[in-house]
Amino acid sequence: MQYQAAAAAESWRSTPTTGYYCNYMAVRHHPTVAFDPLERVAKLASQSAVVIFSLSTCCMCYAVKSLFSGMGVNPTVYELDEDPIRGREIEKALVRLLGNSTAVPVVFIGGKLVGTMDRVMAAHINGTLVPLLKKAGALWL
């Protein structure tokens, strides 16, 4: 599967073993300013039409990525386990955002939270996923 490169500002790059993208940006935080992981999630989610927060070893994540790939959508995928420090922070922020223990896969379409795999599959089955993708500019059918 091919996925588009993640946001240039975050400097994510493909790993040779998975082919997915992970964040290798150097940490440059001002010592007195804490960056909220929820803000980072919102920023990353708004930079592409479809954004998936994933774990490279998760079969449910693979299924969601395969669904979008099969539909002709080229999502931006952030493999949280490829960046142990910020990945864990983002995963915790996703758990807080979702209000449950299942943090991945989490899908954003058009910068808006769709949810985890069950919500994505429900939207696909009931026919609301394709209109969402068209509205976000991820599908041109």
Rank of each mutant, 00 (worst) to 15 (best):
A5S: 09
A5P: 05
A6F: 06
A6W: 02
E10L: 14
E10Q: 14
S11K: 12
R13F: 08
G19P: 05
G19H: 09
Y21T: 02
Y21S: 03
N23D: 12
Y24R: 13
Y24I: 15
Y24G: 07
M25R: 14
R28A: 14
H29D: 15
H29A: 15
H30K: 15
A34K: 12
D36V: 06
D36C: 14
L38C: 07
L38D: 04
R40Y: 12
R40P: 00
A42D: 13
L44Y: 05
V50R: 00
V51F: 00
I52H: 00
S54N: 14
C59T: 09
C59F: 07
C61E: 01
C61V: 08
A63R: 14
S66Y: 09
S66V: 14
L67S: 04
L67G: 06
L67C: 06
G70Q: 09
G70A: 08
G70F: 03
G72M: 01
G72I: 02
L80M: 09
D81Q: 11
E82M: 02
R86Y: 12
R86G: 06
E89T: 03
A93W: 05
L94F: 06
R96A: 08
L97G: 04
L98A: 10
V107M: 01
G111P: 04
L113N: 06
V114Y: 00
G115P: 01
M117V: 02
M117D: 02
R119P: 08
I125V: 12
I125S: 11
N126M: 10
T128D: 05
P131E: 04
L132G: 03
K135Y: 01
